[in-house]
Amino acid sequence: MHGLAFDIAHLLAGSMVIVSFMLLYQDRVYALLNIFALHSLVLALAVGWQAHIQNAPHLYVTAVIALVFKAIVIPTALYRIVRRLGIHRTLEVVGGVGRDMLAGTGLVALAILVMLPVTATADPLAREDLAFALAVVLLGLLLMVVRHNAISLVIGFMSLENGLVLAAAGAKGMPLAVEISVAFSVLIALIVIGVFLFRIRERFDSVDMQAMDTFREERRR
């Protein structure tokens, strides 16, 4: 039983890393949102599985929160924002998929190299989980760095947060309160970001971050 439970947890956490890679090369906005919903769905599954094998009912709540908010509410909201902004047909130029993939692979290697020695004494399940979670966080950051579009930045941030929840679920004894507060903070961030996107759009007629830079005052160098 233990072997199978471990393998499934491993599979689900690994799938999150794979989905993170999928996020990295999506150049259309709707596709990006779909993949993000998939990312959150896998997260919900992974957390739910953790709840099952750790026998920790509060993790089911976390899984439900992930499912409802991150896989359904947030992508839907972003869908509506994108439609109202009228940017669903814009293609984002993703500079060099190969480059991003290579960088992502390096980050995953780095995450494993960092985590495995540090957690040498921990439960093997938590070790793998933490390594994957760090990889998801790093890939989310990479997504935020390589993209120009504000929507992509938001997605990057959310996927990064998914990685944090994965880490929290993997470590035993994390109180539910933390996860709820994290989830709500993300929700609030979404609202704030949504408002900001509209404000930015009104001001600059674009949500492309590069376009915005030309408006900045006093640029030196």
Binding site: L113, L141, L142, V145, R216
Partner: peptide, 23 residues
């Protein structure tokens, strides 16, 4: 006077460097 992406990139680079250092 950097762009948002540059700032994110700085944070990201610092994090990766520190992790590399740790390794």
């Amino acid at each position: 006077y950097l762009t948002i992406r540059r700032y994110l990139g700085l944070v990201f680079g610092a994090l990766v460097l520190l992790l590399l250092g740790m390794v």
